[in-house]
Design a protein around this nucleic acid. Sequence first.
DNA 1: TCATCACTTAGATGCTTATCGAAGTATCGA
DNA 2: TCGATACTTCGATAAGCATCTAAGTGATGA
Lengths: 101, 101
Amino acid sequence: MVSQSNPTDGDKPLPKRQREAIAKAVADPRRFEILRHIATRHCAACSDLRECFPITAPTLSHHLSELEGAGLVTLTRRGKFVDVTFCRDIWIAYLRELDQL
Amino acid sequence: MVSQSNPTDGDKPLPKRQREAIAKAVADPRRFEILRHIATRHCAACSDLRECFPITAPTLSHHLSELEGAGLVTLTRRGKFVDVTFCRDIWIAYLRELDQL
DNA sequence: TCATCACTTAGATGCTTATCGAAGTATCGA
DNA sequence: TCGATACTTCGATAAGCATCTAAGTGATGA
């Protein structure tokens, strides 16, 4: 995991490593669609995502761990389920970086 | 080439294909650095870029044509040189797309 | 006209990664 | 306790891509 969502550092620039990880995570079209789906709900379960995308469990697991590695989502177990939460502050920080270009 | 800079459609959303092309173009760290370098000058020549990055001519050529294919830069010949110009309006349109997520 | 310069194209190579099936782990309900 | 469910890990495969060298194209200047 590169960095966590944290209300106290909402205005600090992202580390370069994290900016690159996010760019890479978002470059895959399918992964971007997954992220968008997560972002529109407040919180999604893997099972929900499996229903919405024609994708196998291992592939979804892979994509989610990429997104988590980039700091864009957090994964939390709830019994046998996993909840996926969008880290909007990290996303906003990323956009702010791109905006400075 | 996916789309051209055009002052009349500055508020239209990007085609999906172009959004994906931009995301992919920006995902490579070296290419992002090249783009940033182009964006900070108003206009750069390939030769200038060759001096700033430890990169061979074919590789630079490849990266520039990727950026051009995404609509992020325009390449114009000037004698034996090529000028590279950043298409800021496309970049802004891309950021607006990401902002809607 | 000819050599040089700036860049492009072609082709090859090696690395990364998206994807899947199979097997593993952990949780829940009966 | 046992089977089913939800997800992860492993291992393999195939596709994509960044990079290079070598060769090609086109413009410039002597």
